[in-house]
Nucleic acid binder design. Sequence first.
DNA 1: CCCTAAGACAAACACTTGTTTGCTTTGCGA
DNA 2: TCGCAAAGCAAACAAGTGTTTGTCTTAGGG
Lengths: 199, 199
Amino acid sequence: MSAATLRDRPQRADSRLPRVLDCAARAFRRNGYHGASIREIVRSVGMLPGSLYCHFASKEDLFVAVYEEGVRRLRAAVERALGHETDPWRRVQAACVAHLETLLDGGDYAQLMVRVQPRDVPQAARRLVAARDGYERLFGELIDALPLGAAVSRSDVRLMLLGALNWAPTWYRPGKRSPGDIARAFVEIMRTEPHGAPR
Amino acid sequence: MSAATLRDRPQRADSRLPRVLDCAARAFRRNGYHGASIREIVRSVGMLPGSLYCHFASKEDLFVAVYEEGVRRLRAAVERALGHETDPWRRVQAACVAHLETLLDGGDYAQLMVRVQPRDVPQAARRLVAARDGYERLFGELIDALPLGAAVSRSDVRLMLLGALNWAPTWYRPGKRSPGDIARAFVEIMRTEPHGAPR
DNA sequence: CCCTAAGACAAACACTTGTTTGCTTTGCGA
DNA sequence: TCGCAAAGCAAACAAGTGTTTGTCTTAGGG
């Protein structure tokens, strides 16, 4: 819960911290915050419960570290995908593709943002929300740049798009349609009018 | 886990079962499946842990009962809202409004469907998924009836719409825009083209 | 009116939870 | 090469978990 954790001190070359984070990400992704236990995590690393507390002061602290790493990876993927795309709609599309690809087959870290509710981690809730908000602001800017009609609310477009994407882990099954294709289809539906009939 | 539970036997007039369900719904909604404890639930009812097992054989059974009640309420709300609406788009709109209203201020039951992942309740996962799928099929039919261009995938429209709505509990704050308004805005965005620029 | 079964109590069960403590090993900079 | 601190082990801690058992109470149908 304290601001600066035991982490991000000088660490040894053979530190098992990375594996701890990986295993924690997997456990939290699979079972949620309450469903994942310290013992389960450290067992899959191959160490004992007490050893974890060399790296983190509490389970909550561990979770925060993994969660923020997830957000970092999402942000990195989106910024990389944005590259030097200039057309507003193509920028939104690139961001959505990167977001969904990272969410769906980018490992366990990224899904934490949509899997675990901040309120499950009381002491750290504000920090988690702050991290997520910071990331989503990125999409806000992209959507603000869209040439939309005056009638449509940009914040609604953002909420719809992110909602639809973030819900995808619920129904997505690997091996079928690729995350990229899905994201492109969603953006396309937003971009064009799907109907043919008047009111 | 057995098919027929202790529930739905003839119950007394003064049975506390309804309150048990209410409190369980609230606890599960707030803290998720793993985060909610039997003791916490029965304490808010005002009885002892053992007493719960007069009504349910296990925590999972209790959860299934509450979850399915939630789905029932959602379905009832949607079917009521559908009424004798005939225009395809108006039907979709009515369903979405009812869905979101029930989800956001329809009590604790309905939110379970979007709050708890079936995989958190291993023994009952298939049943939960079946209940949810049955409900969502309703939306599939409504969207199939839409006069959409041949280019747009109806299943994508369904996934987008339901995803956007189901994600709403994440960001919705009571007292601001009403759930009904939000749902209508979302449907409108789907129905019309939000952009003004070419590709 | 009585007697059966629903419903609740009280107390324990076996186990898991996150965490702490004291000690030992070991990599690495000085 | 030495010494320090990072890292891990081993074992326990107190509290909380879902659940079971046996007993008692009491509402409601025959």
